[in-house]
Design a protein around this nucleic acid. Structure first.
Lengths: 116, 116
DNA sequence: CGGCTATATACCTTGACTGGCATATAGCCA
DNA sequence: TGGCTATATGCCAGTCAAGGTATATAGCCG
């Protein structure tokens, strides 16, 4: 049972998800877009299915794979405590670059804190 | 040259980052916290270093590893287009659970779309 | 039914990663 | 300098993942 982290470690699988971001697609179309063999594609799709990241809709022999993004929230949750850290440094960079105080960057608090 | 995705695929490395989230630590302390051998720990730290996710400060023979969260922004950026999708479904779930119209959920547009 | 299309599975090979042990390296102190 | 501490690296074994080919499965059409 692969975790979302395992799934995203594979570049091909990230590409599959990106392709499904636009619209659901049948296996053959993914196969062609990826430049893999059909069985290769099917195996990646299996991993994605087991991780709950895609859903399949059958239409005759054709399988339409569509995105199921919910499990990605786990990654997002893991990232959360780190986000404020890198945002702080990017903020600092930004401030440094165009030394212009901007009091509505988008949301959270960004105070010039304890920079050594 | 491992990508942030590769790095996070390993549970041990996620734990290392979580440990460094609290404060910088020397190798021996990480080793003990992880229940690994010292060489095992050092090897994970090498991967993290190559990915730019940690920085080392030398103090005598001791190496203090500290977090460098910036590369995680790449993952965050990749997740961005998916976020609105899972947030929409979580919104829907939420609305469904406590059927209470809440006109300020947090930001973006959330229309009840084409759910079949 | 026979053949064709679309996809999944079995099997195999190869290469990468993880973790362990032994050892090298580097800095400290008596 | 000799020995001790802290960390890194080399080497090895086991495991697993990814991709390919061959084949099974399932649905369609004539």
């Amino acid at each position: 049972m692969p975790t979302p982290f395992d799934v995203l470690a594979e570049p091909t699988r990230r590409r599959i998800l990106d392709l499904l971001l636009e619209r659901p697609r049948p296996v053959a179309e993914l196969t062609q877009a990826l430049g893999l063999t059909q069985p290769g594609t099917s195996k990646h799709l299996r991993v994605l299915r087991e991780a709950g990241l895609v859903r399949v809709r059958a239409e005759a022999q054709r399988r339409w794979y569509e995105l199921r993004p919910e499990p990605l929230a786990e990654i997002d949750a893991w990232l959360r405590p780190y986000r404020r850290l890198w945002e702080r440094s990017l903020d600092a960079l930004e401030r440094h670059l165009d030394a212009m105080p901007d009091d509505e960057p988008g949301g959270a608090s960004a105070q010039t804190g304890d920079d050594s």
